Amino acid sequence: MRPTGIALLALSALLATSGFAPYPQTNSRKHYESRGEIVWEVPMDEKLIALTFDDGPDPKTTERILDLLAKYEAKATFFVVGRRAERFPEIVRREALEGHEVANHTYTHMYFNGRNRLQDIASEMDRTGEKLTEISGQQPRWFRPPGGFYNETVIRMAKERGYTVILWSWHQDTRDWVAPGVGRIVRKVLTNARNGDIVLMHDHVEGSTQTVEALEQILPELSRRGYRMVTVSELMRHGKSNPVRLGNPH
């Protein structure tokens, strides 16, 4: 049961003195979108889509994804895990050199869905941000919490570090991390493709190359339909000022 009233205040005080984040609270999507603190998608008339890849880099798949993006003159945003960037810095460097965007996805892929210590949240953001800047020469602007878990504390700490939280279009969660089959990934993206989408994929899925195989079909078809695949930064530059129409996430 969620504590209320005096119990909540007492719990918050206890957590604060022990170095943990206050009891996590969240507001509505409309609240965060109106304040520009979280982005799910970017309303626009232009045929632009942002492909995003989480959890890499991966020496087996990220390089193949980069080759495909180059073939179809597509750009993407890679939400990089800091400790993997340390292991494979040359791949992160290639992402930046080829005009893609590198963004922060924590250092250890920590889920912010519990009573995380404030210093741990800060460390997860700061270590990765510093490492990505060092390797790529890019100052990361975007932060994506693993699993999409967030609360007021996470958003505030991201904002203090100059990050905007980027999630994904609810209709463009490919769930490629569970290796659902190449056809399902392809159909998810192509059936639901809309202007201003942010598509969620992963360039590191243990034991799976389905994302790469799906991209071999997705990229040429999106190009044929007249879409241009861009970074999150470019997508944001082309967005309308009006809010998105909220839908059902399931």
Rank of each mutant, 00 (worst) to 15 (best):
Q119G: 04
E86I: 03
R64I: 03
V102E: 01
L14E: 04
R2S: 10
A122L: 09
Q210R: 10
K71N: 06
D58Q: 04
T164Q: 14
K240G: 10
T106Y: 05
R224L: 07
G226K: 10
G19W: 07
T209W: 06
W170R: 01
R187M: 06
Q139S: 14
M110T: 15
R161E: 08
A50D: 06
E152Y: 01
V212Q: 07
K240F: 06
N116T: 13
R175N: 14
K71Y: 03
W40F: 15
D120W: 04
G56H: 09
E216Q: 15
P220C: 07
W170P: 00
N27P: 01
G247M: 03
V212T: 14
E213L: 13
H109R: 03
T231Y: 08
G207F: 07
R161M: 10
G137H: 09
N113P: 00
R224E: 12
L9Q: 11
Q172D: 04
M125P: 02
D126W: 03
R94W: 05
S123K: 14
N151A: 00
F112W: 06
L97F: 07
G129I: 04
I38Q: 13
A193D: 04
T26S: 13
E152M: 02
Y227Q: 09
V205R: 14
Y72K: 11
E130F: 03
V230P: 10
G148T: 01
V178Q: 13
E101N: 05
R161S: 12
I166F: 06
R237F: 06
S169H: 07
A21V: 05
R161C: 09
S12L: 04
H171Y: 13
A85M: 09
L11W: 02
E98A: 14
N27T: 07
G99W: 06
A50E: 05
G5T: 05
E216K: 15
Y72N: 11
R141A: 15
K188M: 12
D45G: 15
V165E: 09
P249R: 11
P43K: 00
A10V: 11
A16E: 08
N113K: 15
R156I: 03
L68P: 04
E213F: 07
R127N: 12
D58G: 05
G82F: 04
H202L: 02
M236A: 12
I155G: 05
R194F: 02
Q25K: 14
Y107A: 11
R144I: 12
F149W: 13
L219N: 00
E134N: 09
T153K: 05
E130V: 13
G196L: 02
R161D: 07
L51R: 02
E90T: 09
T61C: 05
V80C: 10
R184G: 04
A13R: 14
M44V: 10
R35S: 10
D173W: 01
S18D: 03
Y72I: 04
R115S: 14
P146M: 01
D173F: 01
H100M: 08
A76S: 08
P43D: 01
S223R: 15
E33I: 09
E73N: 15
I65Q: 02
F149M: 06
P140T: 13
D126P: 03
F112R: 07
G99A: 08
F88C: 06
L219E: 00
L132C: 05
Y150Q: 08
T174M: 01
T4I: 08
T62K: 08
Q172N: 14
S18A: 14
P57R: 00
T153W: 04
P249H: 09
